[in-house]
Amino acid sequence: MTDRTLSAGGWPPAVLDPAGPYSEPVTLLAWVLLAGGTVILAIVLAALWIALRGSPRLKARLGGEKAIWILGFAFPSVVLTGLLVWGLLLTSSLSATAVPEGAMRVKVIGEMWWWRVHYQDEQGRETLRDANELHIPVGQPVLLELEAADVIHSFWVPRLGGKMDMIPGRTNRLLIEADAPGVYKGQCAEYCGGPHALMGFVVVAHSPADFARWQASRRPAEGAGGEGPALFLSSGCAACHTIRGTPARGLAGPDLTHVGSRKTLGAGILPNNPGTMAGWIADSQAIKPANRMPAYHQFSGEELQALTAYLVALK
């Protein structure tokens, strides 16, 4: 599995490095537009150069209404009409108006400043809840039903497709698909106040066999022994978080049933390991200011360790 999301050198840029059928045509379009734009800019610069420094003969050609008609009206009209036709056809084919056969269905709900993920079966019944991470099989289109719980957010995984807003009162649909296994970084693209900058997530694409294994592994973990579970219930954690198979049933925050197996913490911003987990519990406000989880300075070192050990074991 290639993971170039959190360590990439920045080239090629995500939008120009497509990884699925819903992003690839857009990348081609982007390249054509960038190249065409450069050529047209060069033409304008050349014309400006001629106007300023050119030979009298060339200047005379440029200096009249005919030149304006050709360069300013006829040429753009032709180019723009061509582009528009391409753009419209692409819009039609990439829109989630017609849902492909056999598409997997997932509902994703944007919240200030994280993501609820509800996996569904083909009839749209909820099968599994998770947060801040979306697992998909490669080669299968995924129909996302995008909603918002509070303010407007926008779902964007540049390598898999364009973005789509999540608007209160509406359900928007977006199709994505990955061609190859990997981890694809996503980000909220609509300003949603406070730590909008730190509202990320990841999409993990598995080969079909791996995806089946992953699905099978989605049962509540046994959990570690020790003080952890009791601390979780007694310290207020359970008021906001759910861990299936335990009395923790809170709904305000992310479901933590499988938090130990997540790639990231804090909605796509930290790698997940015991150190970051402990740091997040103790003072998430220092890491992601204004997020909805209070800092828990009151835990002693041992308590924090126990709680961390419990949570990282929730695979």
């Binding site: 009206f73 723009l80 009409t81 528009l84 036709v85 419209l88 056809l89 819009t91 039609s92 108006t97």
Partner: peptide, 20 residues
């Protein structure tokens, strides 16, 4: 009229090329 005509033709293209 030239501007308007061009605009009207462009404006009609989505009707032909996109299903809703």
């Amino acid at each position: 009229l030239a501007f308007g005509g061009l605009g009207i033709v462009l404006q009609y293209l989505p009707v032909v090329l996109i299903d809703r």
